[in-house]
Amino acid sequence: MSELKLTNAQIAWRAAQDIEDGAYVNLGIGFPEMVAQYTVEGRTPVFHTENGILNFGPAPAPGEEDWDLINAGKKAVTLKPGASFFHQADSFGIVRGGHLDVAILGALQVAQNGDLANWRVGNKGVPAVGGAMDLVHGAKRVAVLTDHVAKNGAPKLVEECSFPLTGVACVTRVYTSLAVIDIEGGKFVLREKLAEMSMDELQSLTGAPLHVEGDVGELSVPEL
């Protein structure tokens, strides 16, 4: 590693370790989709996509696409044995009704009480929300994958979000490029951090207090 932080692939790998066999999982468009590649051997999670499929698989070979068989990111996918199709009201019933075990999303900012901002930066341009505001409600665990700080160095884990909110007090765990942090009782609770990083340094890159309850594990991820 040239820099002391995990790559996106490594963050996705770490998140995949927490997905149990048989879990029903929704992976947000983009970065979170990488989690599927790192499914732990011997476990068979079932992936849900908002446009109406359970148990879809990876992209088909180029030229083999069927454009009625796409995911929420409008990319062509394949089906695994045991897949099903359903309409949008059922699909979001799956989401809001508490049937998913975990939803994994990207973030612009996460606040210490679990507020999430991930759909727009300000009020300019054309707004688009898709299923983001639905997805943060209902799954038993709502996890976020993100760089620990923004490209300009500003903390993405903050006391209060300054960007427009996607949902209030909805995030339960954050996997960052430096740490694994749970949100409990309105505060960030540090669970794992890179061994090479000091607590002081990690805190200086975090926009709200990091609490320690019990042991802090080592965030240990293979080279990918």
Binding site: Q88, A89, S91, R96, G131, A132, M133, D134
Partner: peptide, 23 residues
């Protein structure tokens, strides 16, 4: 929001004028 859009349409078809959602 996408799920709200779906449910609003479903509600119209089902004769339900309003509903509550967390989204």
């Amino acid at each position: 929001p996408q799920g709200t859009l779906a449910e609003r349409i479903r509600a119209a078809g089902a004769g339900i004028p309003a509903f509550y959602t967390p989204a």
